[in-house]
């Protein structure tokens, strides 16, 4: 099928929208986060445009507003009218974060959410959750504060390399 000029324009705009950076953690995009649930073609005030459906991470996350603005700006840059819809249900979970997003977080020094089990042998203990140090890879880490610099993060420290680091909380 031949793509009309309009199709390419919409695709470019969609790519730009999915590429909007998280305002708090600029190394990942809102698409990596799983905040964007849907991008579809829609009539926006009688013009062909995009309807973007987003799901908030935390109820009170101040970054949500910035993310929504980011989506609008990205669409505007491409001259595409956009309609941003917020969908609450189903509730956002860290399981929606992409593998690529997790890798980017780790490289940035933030331990990604850990739904996953440890990959190798771990010390036997009561703590079931293994949080790996993003700096040295050790599983021997401890929680310093349950509430970190943003709603989505906790503060931990590595017992092996002694570095403190943020952990993206699993919800």
């Amino acid at each position: 099928m031949m793509l009309s000029l309009r199709d390419t324009e919409l695709e470019d705009a969609e790519r730009a929208i999915r590429g909007v950076a998280d305002p708090e953690i600029p190394v990942i995009t809102i698409d990596d986060l799983g905040v964007i649930r849907d991008v579809e073609r829609a009539d926006v005030d009688g013009r062909p445009g995009l309807r973007v459906t987003i799901t908030p991470t935390y109820s009170g996350c101040p970054a949500m507003h910035a993310m929504e603005e980011g989506v609008r700006e990205a669409a505007e840059r491409h001259g595409i009218p956009v309609d941003v819809v917020t969908r609450l249900s189903p509730a956002w979970t860290t399981e929606w974060m992409s593998e690529e997003g997790r890798t980017k977080l780790r490289r940035f020094g933030i331990a990604p959410p850990t739904g996953d089990r440890a990959h190798g042998p771990v010390p036997v203990g009561l703590q079931m959750r293994v949080v790996r140090c993003p700096h040295c890879g050790s599983d021997d880490t401890e929680e310093v504060a349950r509430f970190g610099s943003t709603a989505c993060k906790a503060l931990r420290r590595c017992r092996e390399c002694r570095e403190p680091f943020d952990e993206f909380k699993t919800i």
């Binding site: 908030p56 935390y58 109820s59 009170g60 310093v144 504060a145 509430f147 610099s149 709603a151 503060l155």
Partner: peptide
């Protein structure tokens, strides 16, 4: 200071719930 952050964060969650 961790508790400043914690109670502020709890309040922030509640503000979000209140808004909705």
């Amino acid at each position: 200071i961790e508790e400043d952050m914690a109670l502020g964060n709890v309040g922030l969650d509640l503000i979000g719930q209140a808004r909705a």
